[in-house]
Design a binder for these strands. Sequence first.
DNA 1: AATGAATGAGGGTTCATTCAT
DNA 2: CATGAATGAACCCTCATTCAT
Lengths: 222, 222, 222, 222
Amino acid sequence: MNEYSFILWHDPPMAAKPQNTKRTEAREKRRQQLINATIKCIARKGMGSTTLGDVASEAGLSQGIVNLHFKSKDNLLTETLRFLADEYKTRFNATLEKSGPGAAPKLRALTELDLHRSILDRSKLAVWFAFWSEVKSRPVYQEICEQVDEYYDNVFLALCSQLIVQGEYKDVTASAISTALNSMTNGMWLSYLISPKHFDRRGAMQAIDEYLHSIFPKHFPL
Amino acid sequence: MNEYSFILWHDPPMAAKPQNTKRTEAREKRRQQLINATIKCIARKGMGSTTLGDVASEAGLSQGIVNLHFKSKDNLLTETLRFLADEYKTRFNATLEKSGPGAAPKLRALTELDLHRSILDRSKLAVWFAFWSEVKSRPVYQEICEQVDEYYDNVFLALCSQLIVQGEYKDVTASAISTALNSMTNGMWLSYLISPKHFDRRGAMQAIDEYLHSIFPKHFPL
Amino acid sequence: MNEYSFILWHDPPMAAKPQNTKRTEAREKRRQQLINATIKCIARKGMGSTTLGDVASEAGLSQGIVNLHFKSKDNLLTETLRFLADEYKTRFNATLEKSGPGAAPKLRALTELDLHRSILDRSKLAVWFAFWSEVKSRPVYQEICEQVDEYYDNVFLALCSQLIVQGEYKDVTASAISTALNSMTNGMWLSYLISPKHFDRRGAMQAIDEYLHSIFPKHFPL
Amino acid sequence: MNEYSFILWHDPPMAAKPQNTKRTEAREKRRQQLINATIKCIARKGMGSTTLGDVASEAGLSQGIVNLHFKSKDNLLTETLRFLADEYKTRFNATLEKSGPGAAPKLRALTELDLHRSILDRSKLAVWFAFWSEVKSRPVYQEICEQVDEYYDNVFLALCSQLIVQGEYKDVTASAISTALNSMTNGMWLSYLISPKHFDRRGAMQAIDEYLHSIFPKHFPL
DNA sequence: AATGAATGAGGGTTCATTCAT
DNA sequence: CATGAATGAACCCTCATTCAT
């Protein structure tokens, strides 16, 4: 918990957890195993070409296993997206808490996170893009993605606002900057996905740093 | 043709064109009709759920029509991507030629293009994202997408370089800026795709303008 | 058409038939071919064990053929029942028209029909019983079966009423007699289905004749 | 035991009963519980759509339970049919014993039994019809059903013969009458199954009474 | 004895593709 | 060129059955 945690999602209080912890744990492990397999498959073959058979054999299990644990393919995909969103959210929050103190280091740490090897991972990006591409046709996907985006924006907005006040910056607006930063990192994901060879992680970070410097010169000196 | 056309693709010289122009025209019209139908279908249902039957009936034609004109579904998709790429390239070049004179107005016109209603179209974006998501699993897609990206980057790089020289800007690098700009617009597409309601076209343009101003204050005064 | 045709179903006037008669005919032929195959399969393997694969190969066609012509297995079954009902209705009406004149010969001809080899056919009976057994769980089946039953009852009721008036019979009621006759023939189908070896068609007919004689002695002398 | 018990089945002498009566009783209770669940399920969903899962959850037990107690689904179904047959046989014999004295009251009591609420029960009828429909494809079912039928016929034959002798009836044959009676009640089951709303239990009983009166006027006066 | 996770064969269904018309 | 009936492979999913707990 930190000074920005007021923005954090408040997950609904867990319903009374099922008792048989061992069984429940095993179930959860299987589900995670299958979600991981799903991610790998989508990354390797594309979403449309990923079959439940692929997922099952990637997980080293049998045909019917997915339907046993997720009821349907649709549900598996939704849960996979939900996992990705949660995972990102967790990393994001952890970074937010650990970095600092102060808005500037936090801002930089968060942008840096988006270019971190664990995020800038071509397999996961492929999966994200697959879900994004179906946001228009699947309301559930949209809802999940929108939530992540909104949360991201809100945190960035708060951080930028703070910097503007502190630095008495003129001619800049917090919303424009957070939009710019959010877009920039997202766009870099695309660049990396499309041409990983050509992509330059350091160059990307530099672009962001230059931008931050040009906007908030007092907080981000060269 | 203009001063930057040296960067343009040089399409391979056409193979000897088929003579019967009427026939060829009719064929071409059908193909285009089917590609348009494909785009609509992917936007509406997602790539994985788009069937040749959907495409055919969207086009008001019969079952077998796609295989007749495109041989296979794979080929249809590839051609659809190629069409999108060409279309974008054409708009891009037209904008590049018409705007100006001078690098600054060109730069701004190009970024503006990416937020133009005809580009920032949710249906088309959905299709683009669908293809991007399969870039990793389909080399053909990658090649096409990479080419567009590379071309875009090169033009921006040239324009930025020119501005830096002209304005004698310090502490900025052309490549970082063009990376930033490219990423920013791409990222905005994602924002728009995910939450069109929440997206603010004017705010986005403002973010870009503020960025351009902060980097190239002489060329982009407030 | 005859004096009882007022009871007959009046099928709704056909909607304007599709023009391409050849195509339509071919389609209709295929559908019939598949329905026949369905009946054979249900008779041979039971309804629950009949797969679309069975039906297709019984018809000498390919896997997907049933879904092509009937959309779903459910629909195939419903249409099969509808066919059986229509077929029975047609035979029933033809017998009603051809026999006579007079109510007594008609009555006998109709009961005889129910014991005719073409009706008392174990395969078809098995299918009928299969549908009957699902009447409770499938409203569509019930509706179709009920309609046949009701029509049958009405005709028998009319015929019996006429005989009672003509013969001035006392102590009998038309509805009880038609119920009895209808039940008797239906029950005989069951006997035949269960033990075809033990079943005696002539004995069955004799049982009916004795019944008719005992009720309507003037019309059905020994 | 009564004067007709010579016709009764003679069940094969029990194999040495398992000793641990408590265990055996518990087992038997479970089996019965599952058979009851099976009947409910078949009645509700049809035989083809009844799964072992349905049966288990109807019985409030776990997945694997049926295979534990019945080895296989096939076996469960066969045992269910056997139960129904035994149940009917028991009721039949009880009625036969309790009614009377004399053939006429017995005859009437037995026909009345077939229209009794406990027999004329739509759920059970649905199950019976389901088994009957598979008699042709499953020899075991046939054997069981045939045995019931045969037994029924034999008793009725004996009763009718006795009445004919007693009443010195002419122009009637015992076999024809018992066939007629058996068929009639069976047929009424069908009527009831198909259109329970339209079915008139009293009318049905009246039809039988009129028939008995017309055949055996001395024994069944109005 | 009872559970329920796991299996895997097989079902209904979809759909890219072919081809006679 | 265009159609749409037909194919058959492959998909998702169900479910009887097994088995470790």
